[in-house]
Design a protein around this nucleic acid. Sequence first.
RNA 1: GCGCCCGUAGCUCAACCGGAUAGAGCAUCCGCCUUCUAAGCGGACGGUUGCAGGUUCGAGUCCUGCCGGGCGCGCCA
Length: 602
Amino acid sequence: MSDLKSVLGEAVEAAFAAIGAPPELGRVTPSDRPDLADFQSNGALAAAKRLGKNPREIATAVAAQLAGDPRLASVEIAGPGFINLKLGDAALSDRSNVIAADPRAGAETVAHARKVIVDYGGPNVAKPMHVGHLRASIIGESIKRLYRFRGDEVIGDAHFGDWGYQMGLLIGAVMDENPEIRAFVEVLNELPEPLGDTEFFLADDPRATVFDTVSLADLDRLYPEAAAKGKSDTDYRDRARKITAALQTKQPGYYALWQRFRDVTRVALERDFHALGVDFDWWKGESDVEHLITPMVAELDAKGLLVDDQGARIIRVAKEGDKRELPPLLVVSSEGSAMYGTTDLATILDRKQAFGPDLVIYCVDQRQADHFEIVFRAAYQAGYAAEGQLEHIGFGTMNGTDGKPFKTREGGVLKLNDMIEMTRTKARERLHEAGLGEDLTPGEFEDIAGKVAVAALKFADLQNFRGTSYVFDLDRFTSFEGKTGPYLLYQAVRVKSLLRRASDEGAQAGPVTVSEPAERDLVLTLDAFDAALTEAYDKKAPNALAEHAYRLSQAFSKFYAACPIMQSEPATKASRLTLAATTLRQLELALDLLGISTPERM
RNA sequence: GCGCCCGUAGCUCAACCGGAUAGAGCAUCCGCCUUCUAAGCGGACGGUUGCAGGUUCGAGUCCUGCCGGGCGCGCCA
């Protein structure tokens, strides 16, 4: 660690050690009182308790140790025993030159890289994505990027919901609607052997083209109807279950039709996710672990983990010291089928075999906390993962302005695409109002509107701590003022414009010399990047990074208002151009880790 | 009933192993564009951190109880 906080921390820790106090108490933090100091150490207060001495006495002794440090402009004792540190301009200048020369803008990497899987997004076949998928995607994408940036080997897995009862429902519904499809499915189903890959039959059979007529719109339309009918109509439900069971044995007709569902859905989903700046490394589906379930159940049985209970086969996961009795993991239902948790367990096994992760992060709604606790305990018992390698990162729900889960005006669930389009529309309106974009090509204008919309959506989400629910107010975040994504983009674009102008005029960047208060603040903020990253990484909390990006933008904006650049003396101009360029690099890095990309102009 | 999470300014949210005067944005009010993008900058106003106890030199943060809200609790995923 070479940021000022760490470097000063080492100096203060040494001073603590020199006076016989526990060195770890010398920890340094950014000052709570910027009017008094840049950094502070509260360690004298804690040391006083341990050593039985007056805290101010200890602080004074520590300050005496630090007195000669050339980096410090002042060391003062305040209040009950706070040690206030103020840096000299030279130390700040040195630090900013180091950050300026660093392609990572002051960000460190982890000492020991791990293999990490981030499980997020969770789209399903046939069910259109709704606002609930937004948080999983936004937060998961940010965590994936953050971990990768810190040096871990990371895989983002969409964990595609492509298997189960809803597939049986949908197959039945499509066959009901289209007799040609029904006929061909039945022909295929009569084939002698259930084969996994039906491509062989479909390749040169002209009748197979009927499958191509099934569109995502058809699935979107048919699924809600079928789901509703399945709830009220027993016969309909039974048929769907039979089809589901047959699909799971890969009966060729059903399997071929299912493949069409899966493919047509995935293409659309990938396009939608990409527009949001969300891209997965793996699109492993529940179907991909289906073949592991039977042997896994046998193995669990052999290990003595399975217990018969009320006709089902379960794994008990309750532990000594639990505050309540956690329900068991239901592995095989009384009807003999695999359950939600069974698939999750098989997925853990599959990931262990395919990648051997040190850590799997599940970025899923907080309401599933119990479910994951149960699955994880079962996985630990089975030896599919080591204790602590599986972690559920829950997030709160996105609510409407009434405080209840977000709904459309008509009371339905808002589709994700509709929400994104609404936001883009607002972004276009706002750009027009501001008189921007008139000299742009339509393509460029659309690109900017898209980036503004994504920034607005993502920053509105990521500035909140993930664990709490938050109110999503379209009118509020589309106002594009204050602490918003578009504000951050605006600051980045302003720097780009400045640097373009400097380039046109042939102005060169040069070494940084800090003197103005706004410059000091900007450098101190630049220096805090690594601490923000560390916090976001350790707590799996991108809001720490979002906060840093905002503070950096604000610090730059103040600097920009207070310190003329192009009109200043050559050395000052060179110094300030370096500060501007460094700010831009760090801001774009931070925004990229939030999944937000910046346009060249706006 | 049991369990988990939450309660901070009019609104939406922050707050670094417990630390000084609890911070931002929005809203309201007052200033700043003949000079680098005003989607900006400066300033003002706004708080018994749900309530009551406890631990501590020090509590929004830890402990206990209560009030209020959200969510979960084996054969859906």
